[in-house]
């Protein structure tokens, strides 16, 4: 019989290999063997995801590996998450800094490589990501964010001529009285921190690793604000 460490090691490896069937099996077997879901998440899945992210940044891994790891993680999460929730219901210590993100390249813009990398990295970091694709009208982004009760709306735009739609989105949220419900992060090669601030976004990031950090920070801020409120 495998011990806990071996189970965690195997789980980690399935993410690094981007094998979604194996990751589900590995998590199921670990749970069946009585391994606690919390280390499965933090010492198995997340460690694997972290390694994949680093390999991508260093040029050892390419986009397909990143996408496959994201898939494998998503599949494994669907097994471990319910168990985790049940076991640790109401336990503050387990309250994680991930949440639900709706992400899209805004209307009229079809650049999606950067957005896809950000989406894969967020998935690989444990966020529930709804990627709406490219050229997405802002009203559809908002509608989906409401539907899935997103914590964060992420907008990508690479054209100076599509960036104004990100401002429209924030203005529309305000007009609808819904600005408080979502954190909005924006990105793309021409998006600067000044631009993000000027349009009233909650932040921007120059690459996917920073985007994950930003998303985590926004989730914490949101939880703190809710705690305080």
């Amino acid at each position: 019989m495998a011990n806990e460490q071996e189970h965690l090691e195997r789980i980690k490896q399935t993410i690094i290999d981007g094998d979604n069937q194996a990751s589900v099996d590995a998590v199921k077997e670990a749970l069946a063997a009585g391994v606690d879901p919390l280390p499965i998440l933090n010492e198995g899945l997340m460690v694997g995801a972290d390694i994949v992210g680093k390999k991508f940044e260093s040029g050892e891994y390419f986009l397909p590996q990143l996408m496959l790891a994201g898939r494998a993680l998503k599949a494994a999460m669907s097994v471990v998450e319910p168990v985790l929730k049940e076991k640790y219901v109401g336990d503050e210590a387990v309250e994680r800094d991930t949440g639900i993100v709706v992400i899209a390249t805004v209307q009229t813009d079809i650049h999606d490589i950067g957005k896809n990398i950000v989406a894969s990295m967020l998935t690989a970091s444990g966020f529930e990501v709804h990627d709406l694709g490219v050229d997405v009208p802002i009203k559809d982004i908002i509608a989906r964010a409401r539907d899935v009760k997103a914590n964060i709306i992420g907008c990508s735009a690479l054209l100076t001529t599509s960036m104004p739609f990100m401002r429209d989105l924030i203005n529309l949220l305000e007009a609808m009285g819904e600005r408080e419900h979502f954190k909005v992060m924006v990105g793309g090669a021409s998006v600067t921190p000044e631009f993000a601030e000027r349009i009233g976004a909650d932040g921007t990031a120059p690459n996917a690793i920073q985007a994950v950090k930003l998303a985590k920070r926004l989730i914490r801020e949101q939880r703190e604000a809710q705690g305080a409120g």
């Binding site: 209307q107 009229t108 813009d109 054209l159 100076t160 001529t161 599509s162 104004p164 739609f165």
Partner: peptide, 13 residues
Amino acid sequence: TLMHVDGREIRTA
């Protein structure tokens, strides 16, 4: 590409 015309912001489409 032009960023503005006559000081006006350009929006795609």
